[in-house]
Design a protein around this nucleic acid. Structure first.
Lengths: 288, 288
DNA sequence: TAGCGGTGATACCGGTGGGGTATCAGTCCC
DNA sequence: GGGACTGATACCCCACCGGTATCACCGCTA
């Protein structure tokens, strides 16, 4: 009846992502025939057609698409078992905190310092990740807690505690006329001639179309602003990495950004509780 | 390095729950020796000691306890793959809504009627579960959405939308002096001589100690109240199942109860969106 | 239309390893 | 010290996973 092994899930995910048995088999370091067979067996056992093998290629059925999403979550959960178990077994368990490189640097520093001063504090490793990558790292057990920014980061499935809410600033090249302003509006900074918004890679690694430069890292972005090629709008506290060639101008009508600590729902531990309490104190002192 | 099959997780969970290789093997319908071997291999591959095999029995190490919690979540996620895939493949996919038997009956009826009247509404199956069982059913894919009650039900990992907030009433035997009152306080209904609060089974199936009667179902409870053996405090809308021998008295200082729809974070679908929208309308009309 | 490249499915085979039985090795208890 | 009980070890077998070889089907092209 049931039983479904993770091997079968991995096979299906590979095929569903590649939409090509040969390439999927290559990715799995195996030959194509056993992969075809395994997926057929999976479909028979589920009693569900997951893939349409038409002439000229493979495509997902509706059920296959549903299964792909669920299977990814399940595989993440299985990976999380290994990672969290290994960390729980470490001589000094510690915590892993993940955040976007460069974001909320000052706040993070205050949080870590305050937590380290607590009695019974454990070591906190900081794991820098790409934009929007925190959720994945929490789900697959690579991290215990993340510093995230609402409304930018997806928070579904995570418990959170707010730390601070703040306005946003535009980072513009010092030489640009906008740098003279004391405040700006969203309308003024969107679609500035000669300063197109930079484009970040999407989930599949490709870039959306548009006039702005393609970037992968914060430092690339910083340099591009310094070169007068783009501008960006970020939370005020992120200006820590501002260059001499940058000018920060408040954007008065930009949506407020809330910095939060997020953790996988239900994955509390004594160490995490300590960090959350520290964060709550920080939030209280910041708002007073 | 990685790899971990669900079979290994099932084996470990069985042993960790039974704390006895023989019984665990019996539960798994296999012999004890291969089970011992499999768990040993698992420990070697992880490089982590999960179980202490002391004289007189088996016990979990700290890492083993952590792994047990994670493994249960992962196995639920794998089960969810099967259930949700099968449902997605059904000719008419439908939605499965779960709730505690007897709770918010009127509200549920209004919600389902209103949703059924929507264009494009799919069939909604109602799955009645035991107290507090909704989270498990959502996690393992047995249900798509649940009707839950804050602060009673655990909401971690679930996205929610509020429907209605209401006060609580005490359900007391009509023959009891308290039935004459027009309002009560928490202090008055806790520890009433001769009317001890009923006890519900815990997660492991055993009952907490105390003077109250042991119950498993709402109808048992209803009968016990009618017999004058206990009283209970529940949301006002739950009085639908009130008997002639019951009297409902508002408890003025009891915490308010919020009825919500909850669903696994990130598991949105077109059908679910329709139901949530209906619930939002219901909430708006109820508050106005 | 015949050939060819490319795709997934089928046929068959060998080795690994998961699961079985039989037994051993401790421990506790009378 | 013997028996009951528990988990570990020894050994065996065969199911099944993965490999190679090949087929069947389609579309393109000359």
């Amino acid at each position: 009846m049931d039983g479904l092994e993770t091997r079968e899930l991995r096979y299906f995910v590979a095929v569903a992502e590649e939409l090509h048995f040969g390439r999927a088999a290559e990715r799995l370091n195996m030959a194509q025939p056993p992969l075809s067979r395994a997926v057929q067996q999976l479909e028979r056992r589920l009693g569900v057609v997951l893939l349409d093998r038409d002439r000229r290629g493979v495509s997902l059925t509706a059920a296959g698409a549903a299964m792909l999403a669920e299977a990814r979550l399940a595989l993440d959960a299985v990976d999380a078992v290994v990672r969290r178990t290994r960390r729980a077994a470490a001589p000094t368990p510690g915590l892993v905190l993940t955040t976007k490189a460069g974001a909320s640097h000052e706040l993070l520093k205050r949080l870590l310092d305050a937590y380290a001063a607590r009695p019974g504090a454990v070591e906190v490793d900081v794991l820098l990740c790409e934009i929007g990558g925190q959720g994945q790292l929490l789900r697959n057990g690579s991290a215990d807690v993340a510093l995230v920014h609402s409304p930018f980061d997806v928070l579904t499935g995570l418990d959170t505690v707010e730390i601070v809410t703040e306005g946003q600033v535009a980072i513009v090249p010092a030489a640009h006329p906008l740098a003279q302003r004391t405040s700006l509006t969203v309308a003024e900074v969107s679609d500035v001639p000669g300063l197109p918004i930079a484009r970040w890679p999407q989930h599949d690694g490709t870039y959306p179309p548009g006039p702005g430069p393609e970037v992968r890292t914060q430092s690339q972005l910083a340099q591009l602003v310094a070169l007068g090629r783009t501008l960006l709008v970020i939370p005020g506290s992120s200006r820590a990495w501002q260059w001499p060639e940058h000018v920060a101008v408040p954007v008065v009508d930009a949506p407020e950004v809330t910095t939060l600590l997020a953790w996988p729902a239900g994955a509390r531990s004594a160490a995490l509780d300590g960090l959350l309490e520290t964060a709550a104190h920080l939030a209280a002192s910041a708002s007073s």
